[in-house]
Amino acid sequence: MELTVSPAPHIHGRLSASQCMYSVIIALLPAFAVSLYFFGVGALIVTLTSILSCIVAEYLIQKYLLKVKPTVGDGSAILTGLLLGFNLPSNLPIWIVIIGSVVAIGIAKMAFGGLGNNLFNPALVGRVFLLISFPTYMTQWPLPAVSRWSYTDAETGATLLSKLKEEGSQWVSQVNISDLWIGNQGGSLGEVGAIALLIGFAFLLYRRIISWHIPVSILATVFVFSFALGLGEELSASQTTGAWQHAFDFALIQLLSGGLLLGAIYMATDYVTSPMTSKGMIVYGIGIGILTVVIRQWGGYPEGVSFAILIMNAFTPLINNYIKPKRFGRA
């Protein structure tokens, strides 16, 4: 009898790369349910188109361009498609969604060498490409729970962040924060339901798919930074009464609106494009947090999470190079 011989270890922890991918997909399902409730059929069309076109793009590129065995079954293309869809308004025409998917898979992923070699988060590259190329389509946000059965003809309105940018922080007092928790706000279709996104986060932590470092450091940075800004504004306007409450509301709105939760929990934690050590993850998270607030506050766009993550993606190799794990026996 021929015995099998291989080097130790002889057992494996059973967690596979595709399991990781599918777990993230499962974690995103509650948020998908929320978006279906608020944006109706448009959310369904955009998300499915995005997923399907990502799968097809990956399959065609691998089979006919690279001439390798297609690996669409590993779940990474599905995840990219799902995340790209979540980052788009639910009234976006199908052809734009397809362009975004092709850019995400073809340029951001395959051109860099496929799974594991891409420098930037593919879904975000797709989204930012569309945002820059089709700014009108990409900044018309359907109103939540208004026109569930209409797609590209849905009634649109501004997002909270753009209102905040236009009308200043005084507008804070008019925001109903409980709407933000459940997702009753305009925005990209997957980013609205804070509670749903947090449920997914808890699931991922429980399954040990991701660690807390990146999301928590991003959220904490944004909160602290926004709180300080809100407080500074009130105090400079010499409104001492209720300044703390106002700053707190302002920071909480920053946390719950726009793509921050979706970005911090599901996009910034993408394995391939984020640092490998926990210390590095915290540095990366703080960087994303600061950039997000800076772009939101002083930049040309009302929302800056995608740009912040992409910029920090570029720093990931540098962080990996200089921030080493805590070595055993080195105080």
Binding site: E2, T4, V5, S6, P7
Partner: peptide, 19 residues
């Protein structure tokens, strides 16, 4: 004659260090 089946990294150096 082959007497065992090797499974692991495809490198002679790895095999040589093993058996």
């Amino acid at each position: 004659p082959q007497t065992s089946h090797y499974e692991g990294a495809h490198s002679c150096a790895v095999v040589a260090a093993l058996y």
